[in-house]
Amino acid sequence: MDELIDILDADGNMTRKTAMKSEAHKNGWFHQTVHIWFYTSDHKILLQQRGKQKDVYPLLWDVSVAGHIGAGEDIIESAIREIQEEIGLTTTPPDLDKIGIFKSIQNHSIALKDYEFNHTFISKLNTPFSCLQKQESEVEALKLIPINQFSEEIKEISKYGYVPHNQSYYETIISKIFENLL
């Protein structure tokens, strides 16, 4: 789905320009997204398998919930909206623990350049897995796996079918979740 988004400079500052997401991807313009990683008190992490119709990384395992931040949209409101859309879960701002903003540059093709600043959150999943409702148009599947298993599998990203995020990004996520579980 195409949508109007804010355009950022290479340092993550607002430029006061907006564009359709498709135009930003075509031209390699920086923009904002939200990433929300859910974990459970029994040390599991919620993963999302990207839909088979996605332009990039179809059917690979990825962050629990992710999406673009609309033009002028508040970051927290965007995260809450994406969570509701993608997994059918109602959350509130105190449920979200922001752990950082990660710059990501992915040149998928001449016509698809994904230059993002990912506002990244972790959140404890207090709802039973069976109550989650995946968004059929975006999400192929959901699964919970032990965080220790995830930590080992991301060492061989392609073997286990994960989106090839930067290794330090994955390590930061795991570290922050373990800090919250202590």
Rank of each mutant, 00 (worst) to 15 (best):
Q84M: 09
H35W: 09
I147D: 04
S22H: 11
E3F: 06
I36C: 05
S168W: 11
S109T: 12
F150D: 02
D6A: 09
L46G: 00
T15N: 11
K54W: 02
L125Q: 00
P146D: 09
T92V: 10
I105E: 15
M1G: 12
N27S: 14
M20Q: 13
S104H: 08
V65N: 01
K143V: 02
I69V: 15
G51L: 02
P58W: 04
L60Y: 00
K103F: 01
C131Q: 15
I80V: 14
D55Q: 12
K124M: 13
E86Y: 00
R81W: 04
F129P: 01
D11R: 13
G67N: 01
T172S: 13
E152D: 14
F102V: 06
S64R: 00
T172P: 03
V65T: 08
W29T: 05
G100F: 05
S78N: 08
V63C: 07
N107W: 06
H43V: 10
K124I: 11
I177E: 02
Q135D: 09
I174P: 03
N148H: 14
I45F: 02
Y57G: 04
E156A: 12
G28Q: 09
V139Q: 03
I154E: 03
G161I: 10
T91F: 04
S137N: 12
E86Q: 11
Y169D: 05
K124A: 13
V65P: 01
I80C: 05
K54L: 08
S22E: 13
I75A: 09
L46D: 04
D114T: 05
P128N: 08
E140F: 00
K155S: 13
T90R: 12
K159M: 12
M14E: 14
D114A: 05
I101G: 03
T40H: 06
N107R: 12
I145W: 01
Q167R: 11
W61S: 03
D6N: 11
E136H: 03
A66M: 07
E73P: 05
W37E: 07
Q167C: 07
L144C: 06
P93Y: 08
I154G: 05
S64Y: 04
Q32E: 14
S22F: 07
K26L: 15
L181I: 07
Q49E: 12
R16N: 15
C131A: 15
K176M: 13
I145E: 01
L89P: 01
E116F: 04
K159W: 08
D2F: 05
A71H: 07
Q48R: 05
Q84F: 03
D42I: 06
I110K: 14
L59V: 07
N27V: 11
Q32T: 10
L112H: 11
I173M: 05
A24P: 04
K26A: 15
